[in-house]
């Protein structure tokens, strides 16, 4: 019985980890390329989640359309965030100092306050979800002795596609190469003819776009979301980004899987040795202890030089 508890917990943990990994890539881009500390990450994820839910529940539109709409809305939101908030702070700056970095943190927090209270006010604190929609398939799938919800598995598959697409964008296209050039050295990049302002704007759009897109994954995995859902995803995304190394998209993805694995494993162990009721919070606390340890001993991330 003990072993199967562990297996079930780990499988669920890893599936969640894959989703977390994909949902954290936008954060790593913003922080790595632009030194913007996006503490509104969770709330921005929920922009996508809520859009999909609203289109589905109120307008009867398929979540597939919602998926595209959330990407589009994310790109537009990214554009607005860049010109409305970030350009003045980091747009023309070649070397982002600690003070500027802190200003980005504060302004993104202001955004998170405004967004999360908008959710409470305009949408409400009741759980919202896609109800019985699960890609037109059975609601759950048996893998051996483990029963997994269809939506979690498909969300994980979509997560892998998102990460692969973003990785290809960054490594195979001129735009992606320019973004990585700016990340490494904005000054040198501008010397070879890259316009850093344009790249920063596009980076913000892509980062926010991929984040709202990942909102789809969250709503599928969580079944139902509330405004407070953001409060779990923001700090976990930071854990994952630090683990993967700033600006490292694949690193974040793997970091997400590691955190999911640690969560699943420690949850099972705590449930078996202490008390199942305490297992979820204590397992989450291990993720944050991992964060502090990585920051102290390997601040460049697990895959850094």
């Amino acid at each position: 019985m003990g072993l199967s508890t562990v297996v079930i917990s780990v499988v669920h943990g890893v599936l969640w980890g894959i989703i977390l990994g994909a949902a954290s890539t936008g954060l790593t881009l913003l922080w790595g390329v632009m030194k913007v500390v996006n503490v509104a990450h969770g709330e921005i994820l929920l922009i996508g989640s809520y859009l999909i839910v609203i289109l589905y529940a109120f307008l009867g539109l398929s979540p597939y359309i919602g998926l595209l709409a959330s990407l589009a809305l994310g790109l537009i939101t990214g554009l607005a965030i860049y010109w409305g908030m970030l350009h003045k702070l980091v747009g023309k700056v070649e070397k982002v100092t600690l003070k500027i970095e802190m200003s980005t943190l504060l302004i993104m927090f202001a955004l998170s306050v405004a967004l999360s209270n908008s959710y409470y006010h305009f949408i409400g604190s009741e759980p919202k979800g896609l109800g019985l929609w699960h890609f037109g398939l059975k609601s759950s799938i048996d893998i051996g002795s483990v029963v997994v919800r269809t939506n979690s598995i498909l969300a994980a598959i979509v997560a892998v596609i998102i990460v692969a697409a973003l990785h290809l964008l960054l490594t195979r296209t001129t735009l992606g190469k320019s973004i990585r050039a700016v990340m490494q050295d904005a000054q040198a990049a501008s010397l070879v003819g890259i316009n850093p302002v344009r790249i920063k704007m596009l980076t913000t759009m892509i980062a926010i776009g991929v984040t709202t897109l990942s909102g789809f994954l969250i709503v599928l995995h969580e079944t139902a979301i509330i405004p407070g859902t953001a409060l779990i995803y923001t700090p976990l995304a930071f854990v994952i980004v630090v683990l993967g190394g700033l600006g490292n998209v694949l690193g974040s993805f793997i970091g997400g899987i590691i955190i999911g694995l640690i969560y699943g494993l420690s949850k099972a162990i705590i449930a078996l040795t202490f008390n199942p009721l305490a297992s979820a919070p204590l397992a989450l606390s291990t993720a944050f202890i991992v964060l502090i340890l990585v920051l102290l001993f390997k601040p460049e991330g697990l895959f850094g030089r």
Partner: peptide
């Protein structure tokens, strides 16, 4: 933790807060 600077310190303190919160949620009951 104060060996960390800037955003890294800020993030580490967030980590500390959440670690403490989840430990409290697990233990206090």
């Amino acid at each position: 933790v104060l060996r960390l600077r800037g955003a890294f310190f800020a993030i580490a303190t967030i980590g500390l807060d959440f670690a403490a919160m989840y430990i409290v949620m697990g233990i206090v009951p």
